[in-house]
């Protein structure tokens, strides 16, 4: 379940970075859980916007500084998944993140 939750959050983060953040200069390679935030062409505000999306939609309070400290999309997914208290957000997340 924890691995599933982490995967769902990672898919959510990848979807958010690629389709919902503004002013992103995305790299050519696909974003994976090993991708580092600092290599994703994000500007100084994007991590704040990403943290606000996580807070609103996954109901987990994170800061841009925490995302930067965690470093990779996968590590952020692990930390955020570990803090999800409302598991009903995750199936929805998995569906959204699947891009279907």
């Amino acid at each position: 379940m924890n691995a599933q939750a982490q995967q769902a959050v990672v898919r959510y983060l990848v979807d958010a970075i690629t389709t919902r953040l503004e002013n992103v200069d995305l790299p050519a390679d696909p974003i994976t859980e090993d991708s580092r935030f600092e290599d994703l062409g994000l500007d100084s505000i994007n991590l704040v916007e990403l943290a606000l999306l996580v807070e609103r939609e996954l109901h987990v309070v994170v800061t841009d500084a925490q995302l930067a400290d965690w470093g990779t999309v996968g590590a952020a997914g692990e930390h955020i998944a570990g803090s999800v208290t409302d598991s009903s957000t995750l199936p929805q997340v998995a569906h959204r993140g699947g891009g279907s």
Binding site: S44, I45, L47, V48, A51, L52, T63, D64
Partner: peptide
């Protein structure tokens, strides 16, 4: 402090 202001302002 721009990033902190961004977050707090929205919230």
């Amino acid at each position: 402090l721009g990033r902190e202001v961004f977050r707090t302002a929205v919230t």
